[in-house]
Write a protein that binds this DNA or RNA. Structure first.
Lengths: 222, 222
DNA sequence: GCGTACAGAACTGTATACAATTATCCCGGG
DNA sequence: CCCGGGATAATTGTATACAGTTCTGTACGC
């Protein structure tokens, strides 16, 4: 588990460059453990999409999954579907939990806006706030199955979301407005509108990110 | 990989009873392999939702995920959304591929009906035909990202679908009719109707299955 | 000079041994 | 009879050794 988190952190932060090979023994010696826990971590990371297998017949040859424009588009469109469904449920929540939800969302979006206006925006903070905003209504409204699906899909988008707030930290105003639109739709109790607002937010984010991705070839070392 | 498939098959067919513990050494000896590949398979199955971890602090204690009414309802509702979206696209397909699709769907539903009328219904065949019916229009109309989502979600419903055709093999007439309604809606070219027909099919299936699930305590041995 | 074949290295797949943690069972006390 | 408490067993976590496969580099032939 500690190995998994260490590797995952290195990958999502880009310190393990996309496309680079990952060798079990090397990771094991660096982290001072044996290959067994490393193997488990790699298998899990492969499932979650952080690692892909180089073409090979019998052996797997894991490499860090590349960050491509197409992949980002596809991933964001899936997140749009899943979180859109959650927002649909959130719109028809009973009054009591709905009130708390709306208050939290408003607060998170306000903090997100303040963070995006800072002279030297903290990318980690921006990512955390955006992430918390979306997770808030998913947790509030989704059943365990939808949440499980969300948990399986969303982490794969983390790399792109971090890229998003890093590359666009100066131009996050549209995101703030789209978040506000989501809040309004949920408050109005219109499931269709809520679902549409979330889908619009993610599709626009995909478009904005796609414009600037092209090739992020920065190869970090650790 | 062979271990994964063997275990998955045992679980989806109910031969490994829901709720029962899974012991690494036992699986290893039965399948005549060591614990190492078994461990990998268990991790993957856990990630895919076939296995859950018993409450424990440091150790994981895997058990076969239970089949509950609530879980079936939620899962089917998600499938209804995903496949409903695919059906929406299928309704507006060009004439040429649409004709082939409609012919295949009609044929599959006819075979499904015949199989359901058999004196001793073959459950495996019934499952396969129902599965193929739905996969046919998804493959024909869904884009890569929707298909990816479908691939992630649908396999988890396999356990419930097999239960469905087993418990209701005598009463599958409604399914046949609902399939026919889906075909008609796609043929008519009405996206809303197609989406609604698929969602109705899954919601009714969930209701029919929910009535008979309650407690499936049959503990299969292998 | 270029291509191919062979030898060696590198790396992953599997098996087994050991350590650590958790569950079970039995026994004694209340 | 029920409730701890502790010893033992059961099970998972980790480490290491070995086997099989793929990649790399070099040398030889054309």
């Amino acid at each position: 588990m500690v190995v998994y988190q260490a590797l995952r952190s290195l990958i999502v932060r880009g310190q393990l460059a996309p496309g680079s090979r990952i060798v079990e023994t090397e990771v094991a010696t660096r982290l001072r453990v044996s290959r067994t826990p490393v193997r488990g971590a790699l298998q899990r990371l492969a499932h979650e999409g952080y690692i892909v297998d180089s073409p090979s017949l019998q052996q797997s040859r894991p490499t860090v999954a590349p960050l491509t424009r197409e992949d980002a588009m596809e991933l964001f469109s899936i997140v749009a579907e899943v979180e859109g469904l959650a927002a649909r449920y959130a719109a028809v929540l009973p009054a009591a939990p709905s009130g708390i939800l709306l208050r939290d969302l408003t607060s998170l979006n306000a903090r997100f806006e303040r963070a995006s206006r800072a002279r030297a925006p903290k990318h980690d903070l921006l990512y955390e706030l955006d992430e918390q905003f979306h997770r808030r209504y998913v947790d509030a409204a989704a059943g365990p199955r939808l949440r499980a699906l969300h948990d399986a899909v969303k982490p794969q988008a983390e790399r792109y979301e971090r890229l998003y707030v890093s590359l666009l930290s100066r131009g996050l105003a549209p995101s703030v407005h789209e978040h506000a639109a989501i809040i309004r739709a949920i408050r109005s109790g219109d499931p269709d509108a809520a679902q549409r607002a979330v889908q619009t937010n993610w599709r626009n984010a995909a478009a904005r990110l796609g414009d600037v991705i092209t090739n992020v070839g920065e190869r970090g070392q650790w």
